[in-house]
């Protein structure tokens, strides 16, 4: 029992990342009808927003500190962050430690900008082209974005720690009267954050006029256009929101896995599988499939399972995808008529 709960918990954080990326992919696909292979790159850009903010906050200048001496007895030069000059040393220390949560605020405008410029600059021209062309051009874009990030930040993973308040682990077992269920705080934060974002997106689509128009546009774009609504602009905004969701997923994921330039591609392949399993164009399907696959992956990584079926942890996601696609071609919650042939 403990093992099962532990694996479910373990699956939640990866599942959250899958669900968030797949949600964005589905939003783009459902609104613009574009298969976006560059979505993983957006996830990565989000993660590197956190890195950038961390570096910006750490910008410092040298000050000669008379109290410390080096081994020759000369006064030592100390790097002092500009923040320390403005807010005092302790406050600066705290701000720097909290750089990842702060990066949420920092990344939203950046991701919106990236999303809008991507849609207006490139993807707009590909609505009428075949899906293969869309896949190819966004695949090319993904390579370019990833290489630009690599040129700026190098090829090595960059550690971005979580704030000290969340670095420990949480004894989840004590809460429900069981033992040996230890779970890192940050992963819980990630899960909670993902739930908030997902709920936010759904609420936005369900309960606002804007969301209503977007849903109407997803169902029948031409009619909405004929009613005198500028549906293209709303879809552009939806693209920016999808980019934001992917970016936020990336920002919050940095303490779990140090960001490197190819993390986007790694997640992208799986996210596509998630979208297809959930059902192309179905938002609840994408979220559900994200969590299901994340948890299944965690279960398949248990030693007991690997002993029975060796290597299952590596292939479980693809295996599930193949089975689902062959038995339920529309995916778990796919709608009729969306991307059938």
């Amino acid at each position: 029992m403990e093992a099962i709960i532990l694996q479910i918990l373990n699956g939640l954080d990866k599942g959250s990342a899958y669900a968030l990326i797949a949600l964005g992919l589905t939003l783009i696909f459902g609104t613009l009808g574009v298969v976006n292979f560059a979505h993983g790159a957006l996830f990565m850009i989000g993660a590197f927003c956190a890195v950038t903010l961390q570096r910006l906050l750490n910008l410092s200048h040298e000050v000669i500190d008379d109290t410390k001496k080096d081994f020759l007895g000369n006064p030592l030069k100390v790097d002092v962050p500009y923040l320390a000059d403005w807010f005092g040393a302790d406050a600066a220390q705290t701000i720097i430690q909290w750089s990842v949560p702060l990066a949420i605020l920092f990344s939203i405008p950046i991701m919106i900008l990236v999303g809008i410029s991507m849609e207006r600059g490139l993807i707009k021209h590909f609505y009428k082209r075949p899906h293969a062309d869309q896949i190819l051009v966004t695949f090319g874009l993904a390579i370019v974005l990833q290489e630009i990030i690599k040129a700026f930040f190098g090829a090595n993973p960059i550690p971005t720690p979580a704030p000290p308040a969340f670095t420990g682990s949480f004894d989840f077992g004590a809460l429900i009267g069981m033992e040996n269920i230890i779970y890192p705080y940050w992963r819980m934060v990630y899960f909670a954050f993902a739930m908030v974002v997902i709920a936010g997106v759904f609420a936005f689509l369900q309960f606002t006029t804007f969301g209503m128009v977007v849903r109407a546009g997803m169902a029948d774009r031409e009619t909405v256009g004929m009613l005198g609504i500028n549906i293209d602009r709303r879809f552009t905004i939806m693209f920016a929101i999808a980019a934001c969701v992917a970016g936020l997923a990336g920002v919050m994921y940095t303490p779990i896995n140090s960001p490197n330039y190819h993390m986007g591609m790694d997640f992208l392949v799986i996210s596509f599988v998630v979208v297809v399993v959930g059902g192309m164009g179905s938002l609840p399907g994408a979220v559900l499939a994200g969590f299901v696959l994340g948890i299944l992956e965690a279960f398949a990584s248990m030693n007991e399972v690997i002993d029975i079926v060796p290597g299952i942890n590596q292939i479980i996601i693809y295996l599930v995808a193949i089975i689902v696609l062959l038995t339920r071609p529309r995916g778990l919650m796919g709608r009729k008529g969306v991307m059938e042939e």
Binding site: H131, A321, L325, P329
Partner: peptide
């Protein structure tokens, strides 16, 4: 059995599986 994007994803899944195995 599938075409379009589904075919691409299926072949991708098979290749990734072979790679992982």
């Amino acid at each position: 059995r599938r075409s379009g994007i589904y075919f691409s994803i299926l072949t991708l899944a098979f290749a990734q599986m072979s790679f992982a195995l």
